[in-house]
Nucleic acid binder design. Sequence first.
DNA 1: GTATATGTAGTCAAGTTTGAATAGTGATCA
DNA 2: TGATCACTATTCAAACTTGACTACATATAC
Lengths: 183, 183
Amino acid sequence: MAVVRLLVLGMVRLKGRTHGYAVHQELVAWHVETWTRVKPGSIYHALKQLTKEEKLNEVGREPSEEGPGRTLYELTEAGEAEFIQLLESALGSFDLEELGTGVAFMECLPRRRVIEILKDQHRRAMTTRNGLEAMAPKFAHVRDAPHTSDLLSLWSGSLAANASWTRSLIQRLESGAYRMSEG
Amino acid sequence: MAVVRLLVLGMVRLKGRTHGYAVHQELVAWHVETWTRVKPGSIYHALKQLTKEEKLNEVGREPSEEGPGRTLYELTEAGEAEFIQLLESALGSFDLEELGTGVAFMECLPRRRVIEILKDQHRRAMTTRNGLEAMAPKFAHVRDAPHTSDLLSLWSGSLAANASWTRSLIQRLESGAYRMSEG
DNA sequence: GTATATGTAGTCAAGTTTGAATAGTGATCA
DNA sequence: TGATCACTATTCAAACTTGACTACATATAC
């Protein structure tokens, strides 16, 4: 998923120069496991893959006083671009794990940009929800699609709850809450 | 994910003897893409993997009038057991994709069993939600965990919405809605 | 002093997902 | 007729996830 890439890029960006284990520790400190599951193996894979794509540079190994040596990574310019792109796309998603990850890093974007993306996300969520509500009556009598109306209302309710949360976040941002990036 | 395995097992169970393309077609007819994404590649992989685990049997190939030949599969006894287990676990999950998949097949279980599982799921969802609410004040002032209270309220709201939907489904089931499995 | 637990740092194999590619069969149309 | 399009049916490589394992270092208990 894009979630792991965003988390890893974001952490390396935040720390400037770091290693896989530290990324994992920091994610645990952030309690990311409450909104998404990120296993150590995925972190190490992402580090290698992003290095292969030249979004990260491997900048040598560092000995450690409390265990084996560590492999250090740094963000490249391409990595910075990738980070921004993944971040914007995460804030525009209405998948909870992606959205949550985007929110965790939203202060890396300028306030007005975040508001813009969230408003667009809210609009699309409502459009999708209306679409679901509209298709409900059409499938009420289709035998081969089981429990379609229940499933539609499950998704519709979830979208509505998330949209309501997004609305309140937009309000907090518009009233000046949080320290955001300049520029 | 367990979602694909459940969908594939369920479809093969429903059709008695079928092939990958038909499974895909039926999932499209069910509008499964509104609540989860299932690519053809995942279906074919699941068929092969489940066959390797003897949850399915490959029972030969069938020529087709409108294209290449098809590989046919059937459910084994172990497959039936696996289906029931995945189904019960899906109905007990509060991951939307899993829960949705469980609901699509819930009529394969007896009414009282489904109610029992859903009540347990609802109870656990509420417990989780209370846990989230309880941890919110503790992390309000922790600088290194960004936007934790926003993220907690996002999840909390989502859990509440799903729990409310589950409650209403339980009510419909208790008042005798839907044709369910005997036994 | 040595087993044993705990924390640090990472690798690996197996399973899974994804998007693109392959290949057969009619239907349309110039 | 033969070019091209759409539908049928599947395979494949690459990326990604997962759980189990390796290996180093320190503390602690016996």
